[in-house]
Structure formats: C-alpha cells, structure tokens
C-alpha cells in the first residue's frame, strides 16, 4: 500500500521553539533582556499512509498535534525531520500542481469574503485556480445542490448563519475538485441535523470523486459515520492506526446491553448478568464482556421480564475518554516513579 499511497508520512517530527517565562512583571522584564526558549515537540516520529479514496479519522485530545500534522501535510509548515509526500509532491515546496490537488478546511477559520456574497469568492477562486468557467459553474451547481444552499450563495456572507457559512465555505474549498481533503473540525459549532448533512456531503464527495479524506473532529458521530479507519495520536505520537471497531473492542472489550423491562426488577438480579451502567423501573443498561455475551443474553431472556433487548458497542466518546484517561494515569505514574 505504501507504494501507491496518496498520503505518505514517514517518521514526521515537528518541534516549535517557544519563548517561555515565569508570570509577573519582574520575570517579564528579565525576559526582555534574556529570553529562555523551550522546545515543544508537537509531532514526534509519526508515520502513516492513506490510500487514494480512503476516509480516515484523525483523533487525539486537544494539543495532540493533529492541526500541526494537517498543516505540514497542506504545506503550511515545514517538517523538522522525517518525510511527507502527498501525491507525488513534497507539500512544503508548495508546487502549484500540489496546491491544485488538495484542500484544507478549517472549521474555525474562513476564506469567504465577508462583505460580498459567496458567489464572488467562487469567482475569485475560479480565477486563482485557473478553472474553465463552464466547469466551475457546473461544480458550483452540483455542490450547491448537494448542500441544499440554493440562493444563499448570492447573499452577502456577513448575513449568513454559521451553518450556512460553513456550507458555502465548503463550496469555495472544493471548487477546484481536490483529490485530497484535509478537514479540521469541519462541523464545529453546527447543530446536530446540520452536522449530519455535512457528513452525508463529505461521504458523497469522497465517493463521487474518489478523494482521500483525512478528518479531525471532536464529534465522535462524525468519525463513526465517516471513517472506517482511524489514526489516533497523543502527545504527538501515534498510539493507534487501524479499524475503528477494532479500537473500540480493544479499549472497551465490553458490549453495551440495553434491556427494556415490563416491570421493575431487583438491582441484584441485574448485577448477576454484568456491570450495571444505569437502571430504572423501565430500562437497564449493562456492560457485558464480549466472551460472555451469549450466556448473558440467554440468562436475561429466561430470568427477566424483557420487552426489548439491544446490544451495541460502547460509544466512541467513552472509548476515547478511557483511552486518553488511561494514558494520562500511566504518564503520571511513570513521572512519579522517576521523581
């Protein structure tokens, strides 16, 4: 796969030199005369490959190095060491053909001209990307239809709501039909139904154009819906790369069993089956080890007044919390052992 990978990251490291000082006026004055610098490792020895047309979730807690990695991939930052290749290009050389190949969507920043309707930004990007008019018009028409934004593109950007603006922003970012999409929190600040539409759109675009997608999001629903594979980093290091469900199974080997009950039951009876997550008169949620699942289901059906029974994986939010929480604890223990 690494031979024909669309994105190829090998032992990428990126460090920043940041100026550091203690709080207070005295320290501020001293720092003017003599600055102390600290080297912050944003990304360390990171390697992964992404194939053409693949959708990959890029996960990690705040400050894990996700945005830094995306910026290196988009050519905005130089790697400190290691190599990065996208298509047949080295991103930071910013070859115009490379820039034609990619797009970077940042949920917290926007490129739309504030005082003009989005359609004018599209006209400008059409000129910048040197796209034939007929093709640009067709792309805009298709994307506008997919996103259901209709006449919004002719209203001044400053009059649009956040969700409307984000959709219009996407059209601007995809006008040149990029083959590689770097999406940094594309659904941030959107309501639930808008998020769902956005996800449908991203999948649609990916399938239609065979574009590779690398997505970061704090909304695990985005990741579950879009990305069969996830790359997880923490403190700039790779901690998992592979199937999303496998990650969930590994971190949380327990299944989530929800029982709807026709009458209240004793908590003790539930505890015989598995760990009780929550329980009230009408419903109980249990956590059950994968291996014991069939025994537990049989036991529950014969012993309890069950109306309905569902079995699911643990929610990804919990998986992530547990994954990073465990690592934090580990790190603390290690530092204590060394201290």
């Amino acid at each position: 796969m690494s031979e024909n990978a669309m994105i190829d990251v090998r032992t990428l490291s990126k460090t920043y030199r940041v100026h550091k000082r203690a709080p207070g006026l005295g320290a501020a004055l001293r720092s003017v005369l003599r600055r102390k610098y600290e080297v912050v490792k944003a990304v360390e020895e990171l390697s992964f490959q992404i194939a053409d047309g693949e959708r990959v979730g890029f996960l990690g807690p705040n400050g894990a190095g996700k945005t830094t990695t995306l910026k290196v991939l988009a050519g905005l930052l130089h790697p400190t060491s290691g190599s990065v290749r996208v298509g047949s290009y080295v991103p930071h050389e910013r070859d115009p053909r490379f820039l034609q190949l990619i797009t970077l969507v940042m949920g917290q920043k926007q490129q739309l001209l504030w005082d003009l309707p989005p359609s004018e930004t599209y006209a400008m990007n059409r000129a910048i990307y040197d796209i034939p008019r007929a093709q640009a018009d067709e792309t805009v028409r298709t994307l506008v239809e997919l996103l259901e934004i209709g006449d919004l593109v002719n209203k001044p950007t400053r009059q649009l709501s956040l969700g409307e603006r984000m959709k219009c922003e996407l059209v601007a970012a995809l006008l040149h039909r990029p083959r590689v999409l770097f999406l940094d929190e594309p659904t941030i600040g959107l309501d639930v139904s808008m998020q769902a539409k956005m996800r449908d759109f991203i999948r649609d675009y990916n399938e239609r154009f065979g574009a590779a997608v690398l997505l970061t999001s704090h909304y695990m629903d985005d990741v579950v819906a879009l990305c069969p594979r996830v790359v997880v980093i923490d403190h700039g290091r790779l901690i998992y790369d592979g199937d999303l469900r496998e990650l969930a199974r590994r971190v949380r080997p327990d299944k989530r069993m929800t029982l709807r009950l026709s009458r209240p039951v004793d908590r003790a009876d539930l505890e015989k089956l598995g760990t009780v997550v929550s329980a009230d008169a009408a419903q109980a949620v249990l956590s059950v080890p994968h291996a014991r699942l069939s025994t537990v289901v049989q036991g529950a059906l014969s012993a309890l007044p069950i109306v309905d029974l569902t079995i699911e994986e643990a929610p990804l939010e919990e998986v992530m919390r547990e994954l990073f929480g465990a690592r934090e604890k580990e790190a603390r223990q290690v530092s204590r052992a060394h201290g």
Binding site: K71, A74, G75, L76, R94, P96, R97, L99, Q100, I102, T103, L104, M106, K109, Q110, Q111, N125, I128, Y129, D130
Partner: peptide
C-alpha cells in the same frame, strides 16, 4: 494575527 494567511498560502498563485 488571525491565522487566515493560511488560505492565501494554500492558493496556487
């Protein structure tokens, strides 16, 4: 200041 120069640098011009 706002970090939006990124968008300029992403353009093939």
């Amino acid at each position: 200041r706002h970090g939006t120069l990124d968008f300029v640098l992403l353009k093939p011009a």
